[in-house]
Amino acid sequence: MDAMLLTSQLINGLVLGFLFVLIAVGLSIIFGMLGIVNFAHGAFFALGAYVAWTLKPYVGGVGVLFLAPLVVFGIGLVAERLLLRPLYNKEPLLGLLLTFGLALFIEEAIRTIWGSIGHPYDAPAFLSGFIHYGPVFVTQYRLAVLTVTIVVLIAVWFFLEKTRFGRIIRAGSRDGEMVNMLGVNLSRVFMLVFGLGTALAGMAGVLAAPLWSVVPSISEQAIMPAFVVVTIGGLGSLRGAIVSGLLVGVSVAMTIQFWPAASGAVMYLLMVAVLLVRPRGLFGETWERFE
């Protein structure tokens, strides 16, 4: 019985961790390329969930997984073009404050449009059961979330490593001016990167909607873990985000098992501990421009 509890708890931790990773990867890409810590990332996550809730009656539970991130992508593009673009090459604090304001704005806009009480959001019917196999006990939906996030992460990895645009992002995160001199219109890349990052957050929002409830405070449940994951993993590192996301997810799940009262604090302790030992996180490299 205890074995089942532990393994199942572990899987829960992994599901939670992969969701964190999905949110954090977007944050990380945006940070690496634009040099901006996106405080509004949680708000885009919430937007994903709300847009999915609105669209679900029309396109179904699977359809929204594609459509809602697309809508968030569009909103991200507009936000980058209108708000962030004037701030590049200025003090990093300004970008931080702007996205802080944007977060407040989007969260209140959500309250204004969708109300401050929660909305029911169920997993698609075909995923409503659970699986009990050996020592593993897990709901089908969680398993599906696990699968989808892994597939998305592989896609993101493939995109970054194997496509032209991915190479540009990786190169540009180190030397944007050089990329510019190689014939790449950086401002367009920045816009797409911001859109992409927010779309990933939006997708995480869609996936989380049936697990957590669709309430305005959902954004707060996403943003702090995402910060923690990105920082522990090392700013701008995809590998770091994955490792630390899983680490955080599993740590939280295990603390719930053994010392529930500390489950809220454990990730911050982890972050403080890691940063004090490894100044740039687990996989962080020295980036002059961020220090």
């Binding site: 708890q9 829960n12 599901v15 709901t139 697990l211 405070s217 449940q221």
Partner: peptide, 8 residues
Amino acid sequence: GTSDFSSY
């Protein structure tokens, strides 16, 4: 503010 109760 717990969002994930599955462990519990």
